Amino acid sequence: MSLKSNPQRYGTVAVSIHWVSALLIIILLGTGLRADQAADAAARITVLRIHIVLGLTILLLTLARLAWWRFADRKPAPVAARPWQNRLSGAVHFLFYVVILGMAASGIGMLVLSGAAPLIFEGAAGVLPDFDRYPPRRAHGFGARLMIALFVLHTGAALYHHIFKRDGLMRRMWFGAR
């Protein structure tokens, strides 16, 4: 499998970023929900530490993906589909980027405004702030729900193509020989 994409398939770099990002986003959603529901402050700090590091990792992977598409590679040709399906697919992918960047910005905004970073990462004395008091929290929560909706829509469309259309769409975004 080539590092770069060809007109029929995505290359190793794009496939790797896609699947690592997908896995990390699932973990991020889980850690975000767990941190939000944690009653114990120490457990919440531990989960937030993981959540923040993974969030920054997703931000870096997303910026790397955008740079990869802009400067190093071209996406394969769209699959044969109805025009509305191609437009919807493009919109979902665009919204993934917007939501990921928005989630990173709102998460960083909450850390900066709340001053919680030293408490979370350095073990400084103090009590975790109530993140709901900070404006980015609402955007972060909305982004999480939107991410879940996009994830379900994206996965549902991929499974539809794989199970019902049998058009090889999922093979385009997987490892293996051409």
Rank of each mutant, 00 (worst) to 15 (best):
M1L: 12
S2H: 13
L3S: 13
K4Y: 14
N6Y: 07
P7W: 11
T12R: 11
I17E: 06
I17M: 08
H18K: 03
V20Q: 10
L23H: 00
L24M: 12
L24E: 06
L24Y: 02
I25S: 02
L29C: 13
T31V: 03
R34G: 01
A35T: 01
Q37S: 11
A39C: 03
A39Q: 12
A41R: 11
I45T: 14
I52S: 07
L54Q: 01
L54T: 00
L56V: 13
I58N: 05
L59T: 10
L60D: 03
L60R: 04
L61E: 09
L63G: 02
A67C: 10
W68E: 11
R70T: 15
A72P: 00
D73Q: 10
R74K: 12
P76A: 13
V79A: 14
A81W: 09
A81D: 15
R82G: 08
R82T: 13
P83A: 04
Q85W: 13
Q85H: 14
Q85I: 14
Q85E: 15
R87W: 15
R87C: 04
L88T: 14
S89P: 04
G90T: 07
F94G: 05
F96R: 01
Y97H: 04
V99K: 00
A104Q: 03
S106D: 07
S106I: 02
G109P: 11
L113E: 15
S114T: 14
G115M: 02
G115V: 06
F121E: 06
P129M: 10
D130K: 08
F131C: 01
R133H: 03
Y134G: 08
Y134V: 06
R137P: 01
R138G: 11
A139V: 11
G141F: 07
F142Y: 15
G143H: 01
M147Y: 00
A149T: 15
A149C: 12
A149F: 14
V152L: 14
V152H: 05
H154D: 08
G156R: 11
A157G: 04
Y160N: 12
I163V: 15
I163E: 11
G168E: 09
L169F: 14
R172A: 12
M173P: 01
M173N: 10
W174G: 10
F175E: 09
G176F: 08
